[in-house]
Write a protein that binds this DNA or RNA. Structure first.
Lengths: 168, 168
DNA sequence: TTTTATTTTCAATAATATTTGAAAGTTTAG
DNA sequence: CTAAACTTTCAAATATTATTGAAAATAAAA
């Protein structure tokens, strides 16, 4: 396969995966484009490569910065802003885990904690069932939370080494 | 907090989490409702509890069955169908992991494998950058795939016991 | 200061996804 | 068989989300 075709496929695939995970397609595509670009790109270049409007490109680039996945750069003597992705995939994975933990897992844990204070009669089937589900999900979510904390601190080789060693 | 209020909050929270993960809100809410129901419910009951239409309830219940999260039940002498959720949260987690692996991770791995066959000159920066990203993502995705395979086979206590032991 | 290059905003529009509800389909009981 | 109970389908309506593009804001250069 030719490089040009490969690029297209990569951008498309990354966009599809993104939207299956609640990340908007354009955002994932811009990220993909920057991941495979050796040099930082301008807003204009992103617009042209992906055929999107200026407004869209601007907002999407800002979102990617907020997710900690890309950064603004400036070239000496130039006025335009350039954008470059963090190319370390392990950093990308950690950054995404970190953001989703903050945006989703933590609020969920807060709700679950609150819900585990619901009082009731243990002989009431409705209460017992509610309580069991809430408690069990709470435990699972806390385990996931701990695992993510470790992942955030870990080096890639160490993390997968340790995890996969057990799983042989 | 009262049980009734707790139920509402749980259904709402589960629905929100679901939609952040690309699962439609109603589907997550119906799942939540069944998770905390001691008894199997009919389509009619689901419609009433969540204020949704018959068509919506029917399609959503079917989707949940396809995800392996709930099952149809029949009561002797009754004509109606009843629906009950698998209450084992570890099963739920595994089932979701299994489906997403099949629907998303595996197709992604296929594309990445294809993309790693793109030929080019190692001194070409564009090719080198493309190749590095594709290769690195491929490795990460394969590790994730192995981890999910293990999770699918594992008992909950064993899985978290092993994982969290390392992560102290 | 004025001009020009560049970025940001946001109301309007377009695209996508979800939901409804009524009709058609199916199954069981009489 | 026919009627009643129940389930499924799907085109149309709604709701949600993403995108555009042009005007406003900002910042550097002249």
């Amino acid at each position: 396969m030719e490089l040009a075709e490969g690029k297209q496929k990569f951008i498309e695939a990354w966009g599809r995966i993104g939207s299956e995970w609640g990340i908007n397609r354009t955002m994932a595509q811009v990220h993909a484009l920057l991941l495979i670009s050796p040099d930082a790109l301008t807003t204009e270049e992103v617009m042209d490569e992906l055929n999107i409007s200026r407004g869209n490109a601007n907002m999407t680039l800002r979102d990617l910065i907020n997710w900690g996945l890309i950064e603004k750069q400036h070239k000496p003597g130039e006025r335009k802003e350039y954008f470059a992705a963090d190319k370390d995939i392990w950093n990308v994975a950690r950054q995404v885990a970190k953001e989703r933990k903050k945006r989703e897992l933590e609020p969920m844990l807060k709700v679950l904690k609150e819900l585990s204070t619901v009082e009731g009669d243990k002989n009431d089937k409705a209460y017992a069932t509610f309580n069991k589900s809430v408690t069990d999900i709470n435990k699972l979510a806390n385990n996931a939370d701990s695992m993510i904390d470790t992942m955030l601190k870990a080096e890639e080789s160490w993390f997968w080494g340790s995890v996969l060693k057990i799983f042989k």
